[in-house]
Design a protein around this nucleic acid. Structure first.
Lengths: 336, 336
DNA sequence: CCCGTTTTATGAAACGATTCATCCCTCACT
DNA sequence: AGTGAGGGATGAATCGTTTCATAAAACGGG
């Protein structure tokens, strides 16, 4: 309503606008008596700093943009929490954008963040690192890839070795004697999916007699998992795989629902099941879910670290690729 | 790097800055040929609008602040998705803040949003509607309470009748013959918790012979639920309640983990269990969870609706309280 | 061919906080 | 008393966009 500005505060306190600004930003440079008088004026008038003006002058905002594939996936909210915690240490805020595995939405958020002149962008990109990100960074917005590594070393990134994770999962399935394995996941354009499948293929190659079938899904959601599960359930038992490796836990939960709740296929007796991410709900699933654990909070934390380092370093900054190792968590769904 | 501004674009295209602005905001007011020339200059120079300057001029930002109690709770991410969808219809963005049931964090986000001059604030407040929110609104930021109603009608709000929900849950437990009921939840300062408990108490009063015990928790998380569940498991069976009503599904899942995974208490045979919110994972829990469903996405959607209406209406705006009714969902955890 | 409209373009002013060169005082020291 | 140093305070300039009053050009009807 009133739109109180520093000017009003200055008038009320009988000082100049410069002094008000100093009280706000470096109180130690102002005489104690003056500080108090200004503070008083501020609270009497109910003055609230206008962040837009601040940013305009500063040239950069005090936030970091984070674009994730799916906010409904607890893995990503965990990453976000890690990022938020680290950002808070430097007085920065995290803006969370949800691309929902949709290229247009991803682009919209990138545009938005760039217009906001964010400190930097953390992104779990949908497809390839396109022109988009390259241009974004070229124009001066530091960018760090999350949960994703690049072949070339043109971007900083924090990732987990998804190929190793996929290998771990299938290796485990083979170790418990399963031979007809199905990989449920998609779309393949998502690198995480492709890498996990690649790891699975490697493991299969190392075990003669073990076969791998790929069941494609449109997204990494519970619902899509349910569709895949129903398809499996409808098959003739002889024709059914004896193990399923789902590209993430949401899918795995969907498969589980279709198989053991809606159907009569027993997990793990008939079909062993393993997911990926080890979200909190995996342990509480109808059949506690084996999974591949990723250090989600740490990923977010580290990504912000890297971003700040990149922002501080000059143009000749050496991009850094950090890769964590995934961990196999065995529970009942694979006979644990 | 370069910091391209409208001025640069104007120079390049050989027009005035006003025209560039018009191309950006009302292209129909500019001759087609000119539009094209300006567009060209924009893409050649890689010009990106500076949102801070835009907002400064406009006086308001184009986003809405949303403060929730816990981002890790799927219920709130669903609310956020609903809000985001409705906001997008009006070209607005939703900024998600996570108070984590912490008063300081809640305050920090409110300050931040106010400094950002957001269009309005949606909040699921921690304790009472304090001075804080009253002042915020008095200073001109429309505010709508989410998942919470006020006794007086001083704020607009979108809520679900939590008393009715609590009643529904306990009524159901009584109907299936349980008599020694435990309410797991806390802190009581969270209105949702208090209301659900109140509803539970009402239902108990209507059923002679049914008793209610309250087990307090520090937060509404899976971990806190596990603590409560362990406490129950450690008890002598004769001394154990035969039903648990958890204040939300996260707690219920924690209780379930403690009872049936880590312990040997059978659900629902020994202890029936019902949660609240009906999050997606409830149906996939180790024992599919009965719950009280809330129309989460609709809540978010409606809250933004109300906010926009309040922002449009003048000072004499009539605050509106919308209340949805909860719905009982029966699954195996109560013998469904 | 003239006058009143309509279309198109102009550029200075404004938004509000921050910065920085500058000035004014005190005070200590010689 | 004079000088220099340094703490405090000042206020005009600045960031980049939008708005708006105004001007110029194009058009159409009589």
């Amino acid at each position: 309503m009133a739109a109180i500005s520093v000017r009003d505060v200055a008038a009320r306190a009988g000082v100049s606008v410069g002094t008000v600004s100093n009280v706000l930003n470096r109180p130690d440079k102002v005489a104690p008596a003056t500080v108090e008088r200004v503070q008083e004026a501020i609270s009497e008038l109910g003055f609230v700093r206008n962040d837009a003006a601040r940013q305009l002058r500063a040239g950069r905002s005090r936030s970091i943009g984070l674009v994730v594939l799916d906010v409904a996936n607890p893995f990503f909210t965990d990453v976000a929490r890690g990022a938020e915690a680290r950002a808070a240490e430097d007085g920065l805020t995290v803006l969370l954008g949800n691309s929902d595995e949709n290229l247009d939405r991803e682009g919209a958020y990138l545009d938005l963040f760039e217009e906001q002149r964010v400190h930097g962008v953390l992104i779990s990109p949908l497809g390839d690192v396109g022109d988009r990100l390259t241009r974004l960074r070229a124009r001066g917005t530091p960018t760090v890839l999350v949960d994703r590594k690049t072949a070339d070393h043109s971007f900083s990134s924090v990732a987990v070795d998804d190929v190793a994770g996929g290998h771990l999962a299938v290796e485990h399935l083979a170790a418990i004697g399963r031979t007809r394995i199905a990989f449920v996941g998609g779309p393949q354009s998502i690198r995480q999916v492709a890498d996990r499948l690649e790891g699975a293929r490697q493991a299969v190659r190392e075990h003669p007699g073990v076969s791998l079938e790929v069941i494609d899904t449109e997204a990494l959601s519970v619902l899509q998992g349910r569709f895949a599960g129903e398809q499996l359930r409808a098959r003739d038992p002889a024709d059914r795989p004896d193990a399923v490796f789902a590209a993430n836990d949401l899918l795995a939960i969907g498969v589980l629902q279709a198989l053991s709740m809606l159907g009569d296929v027993r997990v793990p007796a008939d079909v062993a099941l393993i997911g990926y991410d080890d979200i909190a709900f995996a342990a509480a699933a109808i059949v506690p879910l084996s999974s591949i654990r990723q250090p989600s909070t740490l990923i977010g934390h580290t990504a912000v670290d890297l971003l700040l380092r990149e922002a501080a370093g000059g143009d000749d900054f050496e991009h850094e690729q950090i890769e964590f190792q995934p961990e196999l968590i065995v529970r009942e769904s694979t006979g644990g």
